[in-house]
Protein backbone atom coordinates (compact mmCIF):
# COMPACT_ATOMS: atom_id res chain seq x y z
CA UNK A 1 0.00 0.00 0.00
CA UNK A 2 1.29 3.40 -0.93
CA UNK A 3 1.94 5.92 1.81
CA UNK A 4 0.19 8.79 0.10
CA UNK A 5 -2.07 8.45 -2.89
CA UNK A 6 -3.54 11.35 -4.79
CA UNK A 7 -5.75 10.89 -7.80
CA UNK A 8 -6.89 13.67 -10.06
CA UNK A 9 -6.42 16.51 -7.62
CA UNK A 10 -7.76 19.90 -8.67
CA UNK A 11 -7.42 23.11 -6.69
CA UNK A 12 -9.18 26.28 -7.71
CA UNK A 13 -8.97 29.75 -6.20
CA UNK A 14 -11.75 32.31 -6.29
CA UNK A 15 -10.14 35.62 -7.15
CA UNK A 16 -11.45 39.03 -8.12
CA UNK A 17 -10.53 38.23 -11.72
CA UNK A 18 -12.45 34.95 -11.75
CA UNK A 19 -11.60 31.38 -10.98
CA UNK A 20 -7.97 30.41 -11.16
CA UNK A 21 -7.06 26.78 -11.49
CA UNK A 22 -3.76 26.32 -9.70
CA UNK A 23 -3.65 22.53 -9.79
CA UNK A 24 -5.27 20.68 -12.64
CA UNK A 25 -5.76 16.95 -12.34
CA UNK A 26 -2.57 15.90 -10.60
CA UNK A 27 -2.15 12.26 -9.62
CA UNK A 28 0.78 10.97 -7.67
CA UNK A 29 1.73 8.50 -5.02
CA UNK A 30 4.58 8.10 -2.59
CA UNK A 31 5.75 4.76 -1.30
CA UNK A 32 7.25 4.21 2.11
CA UNK A 33 10.94 5.05 2.23
CA UNK A 34 10.84 6.82 -1.10
CA UNK A 35 12.01 10.30 -2.01
CA UNK A 36 9.71 11.88 -4.56
CA UNK A 37 10.72 15.21 -6.04
CA UNK A 38 8.13 17.54 -7.50
CA UNK A 39 9.86 19.94 -9.88
CA UNK A 40 8.36 22.99 -11.45
CA UNK A 41 8.73 26.70 -11.86
CA UNK A 42 6.76 29.30 -9.96
CA UNK A 43 3.06 29.02 -10.71
CA UNK A 44 3.28 25.33 -11.53
CA UNK A 45 1.12 24.49 -8.52
CA UNK A 46 3.73 22.33 -6.87
CA UNK A 47 3.35 23.88 -3.42
CA UNK A 48 -0.40 24.28 -3.66
CA UNK A 49 -1.03 20.59 -4.21
CA UNK A 50 0.97 19.71 -1.09
CA UNK A 51 -0.75 22.42 0.95
CA UNK A 52 -4.02 20.87 -0.18
CA UNK A 53 -2.90 17.54 1.25
CA UNK A 54 -2.02 19.26 4.51
CA UNK A 55 -5.32 21.14 4.54
CA UNK A 56 -3.47 24.42 4.84
CA UNK A 57 -5.09 26.31 1.98
CA UNK A 58 -7.12 29.46 2.62
CA UNK A 59 -10.91 29.37 2.41
CA UNK A 60 -10.88 30.80 -1.12
CA UNK A 61 -9.57 27.48 -2.39
CA UNK A 62 -11.75 24.63 -3.61
CA UNK A 63 -10.07 21.24 -3.41
CA UNK A 64 -11.44 18.38 -5.46
CA UNK A 65 -9.95 14.94 -5.95
CA UNK A 66 -11.08 11.46 -6.90
CA UNK A 67 -9.00 10.09 -4.10
CA UNK A 68 -6.63 11.43 -1.51
CA UNK A 69 -5.51 8.84 0.97
CA UNK A 70 -2.77 8.59 3.54
CA UNK A 71 -1.95 5.01 4.52
CA UNK A 72 -5.24 4.01 3.01
CA UNK A 73 -7.19 6.53 5.08
CA UNK A 74 -9.30 8.99 3.16
CA UNK A 75 -8.06 12.53 3.77
CA UNK A 76 -10.71 14.40 1.82
CA UNK A 77 -13.66 13.99 4.15
CA UNK A 78 -11.77 14.01 7.38
CA UNK A 79 -13.06 15.98 10.36
CA UNK A 80 -10.72 18.88 11.15
CA UNK A 81 -9.92 17.38 14.56
CA UNK A 82 -9.05 14.02 13.00
CA UNK A 83 -6.98 15.73 10.37
CA UNK A 84 -4.99 17.61 13.00
CA UNK A 85 -4.07 14.31 14.61
CA UNK A 86 -2.44 13.18 11.40
CA UNK A 87 -0.95 16.47 10.27
CA UNK A 88 2.09 17.35 12.29
CA UNK A 89 2.41 13.84 13.58
CA UNK A 90 2.36 11.40 10.70
CA UNK A 91 2.78 14.03 7.99
CA UNK A 92 4.92 17.04 8.67
CA UNK A 93 6.25 19.80 6.54
CA UNK A 94 9.21 22.18 6.35
CA UNK A 95 9.21 25.42 4.44
CA UNK A 96 11.42 27.64 2.36
CA UNK A 97 12.06 30.47 4.81
CA UNK A 98 13.54 28.86 7.91
CA UNK A 99 13.78 32.05 9.94
CA UNK A 100 10.22 33.11 9.14
CA UNK A 101 8.89 29.63 9.89
CA UNK A 102 9.95 29.83 13.53
CA UNK A 103 8.08 32.00 15.98
CA UNK A 104 10.50 34.77 17.00
CA UNK A 105 8.92 35.16 20.46
CA UNK A 106 9.71 31.68 21.77
CA UNK A 107 12.86 29.71 22.32
CA UNK A 108 13.79 26.90 20.03
CA UNK A 109 13.39 24.39 22.86
CA UNK A 110 9.89 25.61 23.63
CA UNK A 111 8.82 25.25 20.02
CA UNK A 112 10.08 21.71 19.76
CA UNK A 113 8.50 20.71 23.06
CA UNK A 114 5.24 22.35 22.02
CA UNK A 115 4.96 19.94 19.11
CA UNK A 116 5.75 17.02 21.38
CA UNK A 117 3.09 18.14 23.84
CA UNK A 118 0.48 18.27 21.09
CA UNK A 119 1.09 14.86 19.68
CA UNK A 120 2.67 12.68 22.36
CA UNK A 121 1.97 11.91 26.01
CA UNK A 122 5.54 12.38 27.17
CA UNK A 123 5.97 14.23 30.45
CA UNK A 124 7.95 17.44 30.80
CA UNK A 125 11.32 15.84 31.50
CA UNK A 126 10.89 13.30 28.72
CA UNK A 127 9.95 16.05 26.29
CA UNK A 128 13.09 17.93 27.19
CA UNK A 129 15.23 14.85 26.72
CA UNK A 130 13.60 14.19 23.37
CA UNK A 131 14.16 17.79 22.26
CA UNK A 132 17.85 17.53 23.05
CA UNK A 133 17.99 14.23 21.22
CA UNK A 134 16.34 15.78 18.18
CA UNK A 135 18.67 18.78 18.07
CA UNK A 136 21.57 16.39 18.30
CA UNK A 137 20.14 14.34 15.45
CA UNK A 138 19.92 17.36 13.17
CA UNK A 139 23.51 18.27 13.92
CA UNK A 140 23.25 21.30 16.16
CA UNK A 141 26.26 21.64 18.47
CA UNK A 142 25.62 21.99 22.24
CA UNK A 143 21.94 21.02 22.00
CA UNK A 144 21.44 21.53 25.72
CA UNK A 145 22.55 25.14 25.46
CA UNK A 146 20.70 25.71 22.22
CA UNK A 147 17.30 24.84 23.73
CA UNK A 148 17.25 28.29 25.28
CA UNK A 149 18.17 30.15 22.08
CA UNK A 150 15.79 32.33 20.17
CA UNK A 151 15.51 31.98 16.39
CA UNK A 152 17.18 35.33 15.74
CA UNK A 153 20.29 34.15 17.55
CA UNK A 154 20.80 31.41 14.97
CA UNK A 155 21.83 31.43 11.33
CA UNK A 156 19.48 30.49 8.51
CA UNK A 157 21.02 27.03 8.19
CA UNK A 158 20.65 26.37 11.90
CA UNK A 159 17.04 27.56 11.86
CA UNK A 160 16.33 25.11 9.06
CA UNK A 161 17.88 22.37 11.17
CA UNK A 162 15.57 23.32 14.01
CA UNK A 163 12.62 23.23 11.62
CA UNK A 164 13.67 19.76 10.59
CA UNK A 165 13.94 18.76 14.25
CA UNK A 166 10.39 20.00 14.85
CA UNK A 167 9.15 18.17 11.77
CA UNK A 168 10.79 14.98 12.92
CA UNK A 169 9.66 15.31 16.53
CA UNK A 170 6.90 12.71 16.24
CA UNK A 171 8.63 10.33 13.83
CA UNK A 172 6.50 11.22 10.81
CA UNK A 173 5.77 8.67 8.14
CA UNK A 174 5.91 11.35 5.48
CA UNK A 175 7.94 14.55 5.37
CA UNK A 176 7.03 17.24 2.86
CA UNK A 177 9.90 19.64 2.24
CA UNK A 178 8.85 22.74 0.31
CA UNK A 179 11.98 24.29 -1.23
CA UNK A 180 13.91 23.57 1.98
CA UNK A 181 17.21 24.99 0.73
CA UNK A 182 16.24 27.75 -1.69
CA UNK A 183 16.94 30.53 0.81
CA UNK A 184 20.29 29.07 1.84
CA UNK A 185 23.83 29.32 0.53
CA UNK A 186 25.23 26.50 -1.56
CA UNK A 187 27.50 25.09 1.11
CA UNK A 188 24.70 25.20 3.68
CA UNK A 189 22.32 23.73 1.11
CA UNK A 190 24.63 20.79 0.74
CA UNK A 191 24.72 20.22 4.50
CA UNK A 192 20.94 20.42 4.84
CA UNK A 193 20.31 18.11 1.90
CA UNK A 194 22.84 15.62 3.24
CA UNK A 195 21.14 15.80 6.62
CA UNK A 196 17.69 15.26 5.14
CA UNK A 197 18.86 12.31 3.04
CA UNK A 198 20.66 10.80 5.99
CA UNK A 199 17.60 11.12 8.25
CA UNK A 200 15.36 9.76 5.54
CA UNK A 201 17.56 6.72 5.04
CA UNK A 202 17.79 6.10 8.79
CA UNK A 203 14.10 6.47 9.61
CA UNK A 204 12.77 5.05 6.37
CA UNK A 205 10.15 7.74 6.08
CA UNK A 206 8.65 8.79 2.80
CA UNK A 207 9.62 12.21 1.57
CA UNK A 208 8.24 14.69 -0.92
CA UNK A 209 10.72 17.31 -1.97
CA UNK A 210 9.32 20.32 -3.74
CA UNK A 211 11.92 22.26 -5.65
CA UNK A 212 12.67 24.24 -8.78
CA UNK A 213 16.32 23.26 -8.82
CA UNK A 214 17.27 20.41 -11.13
CA UNK A 215 20.56 20.04 -9.29
CA UNK A 216 18.78 19.38 -6.01
CA UNK A 217 16.57 16.84 -7.74
CA UNK A 218 19.55 15.05 -9.19
CA UNK A 219 21.23 14.89 -5.80
CA UNK A 220 18.27 13.62 -3.78
CA UNK A 221 15.30 12.09 -5.57
CA UNK A 222 14.35 8.50 -6.34
CA UNK A 223 11.43 9.46 -8.51
CA UNK A 224 10.51 12.78 -10.09
CA UNK A 225 7.26 14.46 -11.09
CA UNK A 226 7.59 17.43 -13.43
CA UNK A 227 4.80 19.97 -13.16
CA UNK A 228 3.96 22.91 -15.37
CA UNK A 229 1.05 25.31 -14.96
CA UNK A 230 -0.79 22.99 -12.61
CA UNK A 231 -0.45 19.89 -14.78
CA UNK A 232 1.78 16.89 -14.54
CA UNK A 233 4.08 16.80 -17.55
CA UNK A 234 6.13 13.76 -16.81
CA UNK A 235 6.82 11.22 -14.13
CA UNK A 236 9.87 9.02 -14.11
CA UNK A 237 12.61 7.65 -11.92
CA UNK A 238 15.44 10.09 -11.56
CA UNK A 239 17.95 8.40 -13.80
CA UNK A 240 15.68 7.92 -16.78
CA UNK A 241 14.37 11.46 -16.41
CA UNK A 242 17.83 12.93 -16.77
CA UNK A 243 18.95 10.37 -19.32
CA UNK A 244 15.91 10.25 -21.55
CA UNK A 245 13.47 13.05 -20.83
CA UNK A 246 10.24 12.33 -22.68
CA UNK A 247 8.21 15.49 -22.49
CA UNK A 248 9.31 18.61 -24.41
CA UNK A 249 9.01 20.72 -21.27
CA UNK A 250 11.35 18.46 -19.33
CA UNK A 251 13.79 18.54 -22.21
CA UNK A 252 13.56 22.33 -22.24
CA UNK A 253 14.19 22.56 -18.51
CA UNK A 254 17.25 20.38 -18.72
CA UNK A 255 18.57 22.20 -21.73
CA UNK A 256 18.13 25.55 -20.03
CA UNK A 257 20.57 24.57 -17.29
CA UNK A 258 23.65 26.70 -17.89
CA UNK A 259 25.95 23.73 -17.23
CA UNK A 260 24.35 21.86 -20.12
CA UNK A 261 24.79 24.80 -22.48
CA UNK A 262 26.04 23.99 -25.94
CA UNK A 263 27.41 26.96 -27.84
CA UNK A 264 26.92 30.46 -26.52
CA UNK A 265 23.13 30.63 -26.43
CA UNK A 266 20.92 28.92 -23.92
CA UNK A 267 17.85 27.24 -25.36
CA UNK A 268 14.67 28.57 -23.78
CA UNK A 269 11.35 26.88 -23.16
CA UNK A 270 9.86 28.69 -26.12
CA UNK A 271 12.37 26.95 -28.38
CA UNK A 272 10.66 23.69 -27.59
CA UNK A 273 7.40 24.84 -29.13
CA UNK A 274 5.30 24.51 -26.07
CA UNK A 275 1.98 26.22 -26.01
CA UNK A 276 2.81 29.17 -23.82
CA UNK A 277 -0.25 31.25 -23.18
CA UNK A 278 0.68 34.90 -22.80
CA UNK A 279 0.84 36.49 -19.39
CA UNK A 280 -2.36 38.36 -18.63
CA UNK A 281 -2.82 40.71 -15.74
CA UNK A 282 -1.77 40.41 -12.15
CA UNK A 283 -1.42 37.14 -10.35
CA UNK A 284 -3.74 36.53 -7.43
Amino acid sequence: MALLEIENLTVEFETAAGTLRAVDGISLCVEEGEVLAIVGESGSGKSVSMLAVMGLLPWTATVKADRMAFQGRDMLNLEPAERRKIIGKDISMIFQEPIASLNPCFTVGFQIQETLRQHTDLDRAARRRRAIELLEAVGIPDPQERLGSFPHQMSGGQCQRVMIAIALACDPKLLIADEPTTALDVTIQKQILDLLMDLQARTGMGMILITHDMGVVAETADRVVVQYKGRKMEEADVLSLFERPQHPYTKALLAALPENAVGDRLPTVADFSLDDTPYTGARP
Partner: peptide
Amino acid sequence: AATPRADVESIRRRL
Protein backbone atom coordinates in the same frame (compact mmCIF):
# COMPACT_ATOMS: atom_id res chain seq x y z
CA ALA B 1 32.00 20.39 -4.14
CA ALA B 2 28.78 21.76 -2.65
CA THR B 3 27.23 22.73 -5.96
CA PRO B 4 24.63 20.16 -6.93
CA ARG B 5 25.39 18.30 -10.12
CA ALA B 6 22.63 17.54 -12.55
CA ASP B 7 24.46 15.17 -14.87
CA VAL B 8 23.61 11.55 -15.41
CA GLU B 9 26.98 10.30 -14.21
CA SER B 10 26.68 11.79 -10.74
CA ILE B 11 23.13 10.53 -10.41
CA ARG B 12 24.35 7.03 -11.25
CA ARG B 13 27.09 7.32 -8.67
CA ARG B 14 24.66 8.51 -6.03
CA LEU B 15 22.19 5.72 -6.72
